[in-house]
């Protein structure tokens, strides 16, 4: 149980996929203009990551090393298809907003990277802990980023048609925060903040790695 908790917590802090490992950036920066979009994107990633980690860990004895990547991709693609069709049916507005990013969860480095680096070598219960932790770490960062951008940029936060917070009418937000440059710049400050926090709490420099783990794995 102790091992389970420590695996689970790693994804949230010291091995956070976004601010530390730097994987799965594309979707994060692109859909973080709206709080609700980011919320459902985070939910979709938590679901796909947990389920695919579990399934990969369950079948890891049957999967030969040479063809593991295509098999992982098929596993992930089937869960993404479930998310794709479910969202299309029940949340059509969110589905239109997320657009091409739903099918792109298949090639999101977080999911393939965790299947390759963790779930393939560990037992199912630990793989679920890793998937949940990494997924929630991803969701937390993307939701914080989207909240900051929507709040600063437009002065209000809307969730499924209801306004949660609204600044008084005289507030004119800097529109650039909602555009593409704003995402890069705010995320840059978030990475710097997370790095400083990790240094203070864990007393060591956490090396940021700007690459996909899967890229090296696939070349073999």
């Amino acid at each position: 149980m102790n091992e389970w908790m420590s695996t689970f917590k790693r994804g949230l802090s010291i091995d956070n996929p976004l601010t530390v490992l730097m994987i799965g950036l594309c979707a994060t920066l692109a859909v973080s203009t709206k709080f609700e979009g980011a919320f459902f994107m985070g939910l979709a990633v938590v679901f796909v990551l947990t389920m695919s980690s579990l399934l990969v860990a369950l079948i890891r004895g049957l999967v030969p090393e040479q063809v593991r990547i295509p098999i992982f991709i098929v596993v992930i693609a089937s869960f993404v298809t479930i998310v794709d069709l479910t969202m299309h049916a029940f949340l059509p507005d969110i589905y239109t907003f997320l657009g091409v990013w739903i099918p792109l969860i298949v090639v999101n480095c977080v999911i393939l990277g965790r299947a390759e680096a963790f779930a393939y070598h560990n037992k199912p219960s630990l793989a679920v802990a890793d998937g949940l932790g990494m997924g929630l770490g991803f969701a937390a960062v993307i939701i914080v980023l989207a909240t900051l951008r929507e709040f600063i940029g437009s002065g209000e936060i809307v969730f499924l048609g209801t306004t949660i917070v609204r600044l008084p009418g005289w507030y004119r937000g800097p529109g650039v925060v909602l555009l593409f440059p704003g995402a890069f710049i705010i995320f840059g400050f978030m990475v710097a903040g997370a790095g400083a926090m990790n240094r203070r709490i864990h007393g060591r420099v956490v090396e940021t790695k700007a690459h996909c783990t899967i890229e090296e794995g696939a070349s073999r």
Partner: peptide
């Protein structure tokens, strides 16, 4: 923002 992993 598509393909940022190799970009960085």
């Amino acid at each position: 923002f598509i393909g940022l992993c190799p970009f960085f």
